[in-house]
């Protein structure tokens, strides 16, 4: 079922920019059009690019937002999940709870 919904209607998560739009909806209660427009503006891409995995992989690599691990194309110097989330928080101007907790423990 999650595969069917994901392929039929999902934004593609980390393959594209679904996780970024999700953060705005969850934390700010932004509706879809507003959240997509906000993220596209912050990333400097078009709204349609947000669910295009080809376009977004380059954007995510350039901005250090984390990428899907691909066995055929390793990227060992990509940021760790916490580093990626810190970059996401800064880029979309949205505090991320786990990043804030890490900072509160004295790490930045």
């Amino acid at each position: 079922m999650p595969v069917a919904h994901g392929v039929a209607a999902g934004m593609g998560g980390m393959r594209a920019a679904g996780d970024l739009v999700a953060r705005l909806q969850m934390a700010r209660g932004m509706r879809l059009v507003e959240a997509k427009t906000y993220v596209a503006c912050k990333l400097g891409v078009g709204v349609r690019d947000l669910s295009d995995c080809v376009a977004m992989q380059e954007v995510r690599a350039d901005l250090g937002l984390g990428r899907i691990l691909e066995g055929e194309a390793p990227h060992p110097f990509d940021p760790s999940p916490m580093e990626a989330k810190a970059n996401i928080a800064r880029l979309i101007d949205l505090p991320i709870n786990s990043v804030e907790r890490l900072r509160a423990r004295g790490l930045s």
Binding site: P2, G6, V7, G10, M11, G18, A22, A35, R48
Partner: peptide
């Protein structure tokens, strides 16, 4: 066998119990 929304019309998926 399968159908889907138009390209560009994708929506956020939230889950329970992943």
């Amino acid at each position: 066998r399968f159908t889907a929304v138009d390209i560009g019309d994708e929506v956020m998926l939230s889950f329970d119990g992943t």
